[in-house]
Simulated scan of single mutants.
Amino acid sequence: MFKIVLSDGTEVFLNAGSRLAYPTKFVRKERIVTLEGEAYFKVAKDKDHPFIVKTGTVETRVLGTEFNVSSYSASDVHVTLIEGSVQVDASGSSKVIVPGQDLCIREDGNMTVEEVDLHSYMYWRDGYFYFDNLPLVDVLKSIGRWYNVGVEFRNTEAMGCKVHFLSERFQGLEHTLTLLNRMEKADIRLEGNTLVVD
């Protein structure tokens, strides 16, 4: 995880496996950055200079707000609004979301909006894993990305098992695995550079 303060005062928290391209100083009418991966933005207010986050084919436009963008894969892009409002443009469609909503853009351009628990988007920024009723496969993908390890499900039935999980990221992988195994949903261990789920 990495925090960047842009020249306009905007704070950006980058999650594991993420890249952000930005100018050293914003000099144009629009403040444009490009993201691969996931980032949490606290955008400095400037009504005359919209802030734009580009991710592949998706563009998120704001004036001053807090939101999270997850774009690890073109087939599963999420924009989650914490406060303020954002406009999301993708594949010729445009949608405005309100706080507490997550806009999902699929590879075919379809957009869906749903209400979400905002805690998970704020917890990762503060150094925690927080998953609320998510499939174990999604939880382990996120943990694997953070610790730079692969994930192999030998017990495929465990993939869809829903879990509630909270752990400090900086306690290390062994600590995280101990907590995961205490839930007794599956046996998870590290073999080489891979999390194996039995």
Results as ranks from 00 to 15, higher is better:
Glu59Trp: 07
Ser94Asp: 01
Val96Phe: 07
His78Gly: 02
Ser73Trp: 04
Ser93His: 08
Leu103Gly: 04
Ala39Cys: 15
Ile97Lys: 03
Lys45Trp: 09
Thr80Val: 15
Pro99His: 03
Glu83Lys: 15
Lys42Ile: 12
Ile82Arg: 06
Ala74Cys: 07
Val98Tyr: 07
Ala39Phe: 02
Val43Arg: 03
Glu107Gln: 11
Val96Leu: 12
Val88Leu: 11
Ile82Tyr: 09
Thr57Asn: 11
Gly56Val: 03
Glu59His: 09
Glu59Asp: 09
Thr80Ile: 14
Ser85Pro: 08
Val43Ser: 01
Leu35Ile: 11
Pro99Phe: 04
Arg61Pro: 12
Ala90Asn: 09
Gly100Thr: 10
Asp48Trp: 10
Val79Trp: 11
Gly37Val: 01
Ile32Ser: 01
Gly64Met: 14
Tyr40Ala: 01
Gly100Arg: 08
Glu66Lys: 15
Glu66Ser: 15
Ala44Phe: 08
Pro99Gly: 00
Gly64Glu: 12
Ile32Met: 12
Ala39Asp: 13
Val86Arg: 02
Ser75Asp: 15
Gly64Trp: 09
Leu81Trp: 06
Thr34His: 13
Asp48His: 15
Asp89Trp: 02
His49Phe: 07
His49Met: 07
Asp48Ala: 11
Lys54Tyr: 03
Asp102Cys: 01
Val58Glu: 00
Pro99Asp: 02
Thr60Val: 14
Lys42Trp: 04
Leu103Ser: 00
Ser73Pro: 05
Pro50Val: 07
Asp89Ser: 12
Val79Leu: 11
Ala74Ser: 10
Ala74Lys: 14
Gln101Ser: 08
Val77Glu: 00
Gly84Leu: 11
Glu38Gln: 12
Phe41Cys: 14
Glu66Thr: 08
Thr34Leu: 08
Tyr72Gln: 04
Ser71Arg: 00
Ala74Phe: 09
Glu36Lys: 15
Leu63Ile: 00
Glu38Lys: 09
Phe51Met: 07
Phe41His: 10
His49Val: 01
Val53Arg: 03
Gly92Lys: 04
Gln87His: 08
Tyr72Pro: 05
Val69Trp: 00
Leu63Asn: 06
Ser85Gly: 15
Lys54Ala: 06
Val77Pro: 02
Gly92Thr: 05
Leu103Gln: 01
Asp76Cys: 02
Thr65His: 05
Lys95Cys: 10
Val88Glu: 08
Ser73Tyr: 09
Pro50Ser: 06
Ser71Gly: 15
Ala44Tyr: 06
Gly37Trp: 00
Val96Pro: 06
Asn68Phe: 05
Ile52Ser: 05
Thr65Ala: 06
Cys104Lys: 14
Val43Gln: 02
Ile97Ser: 04
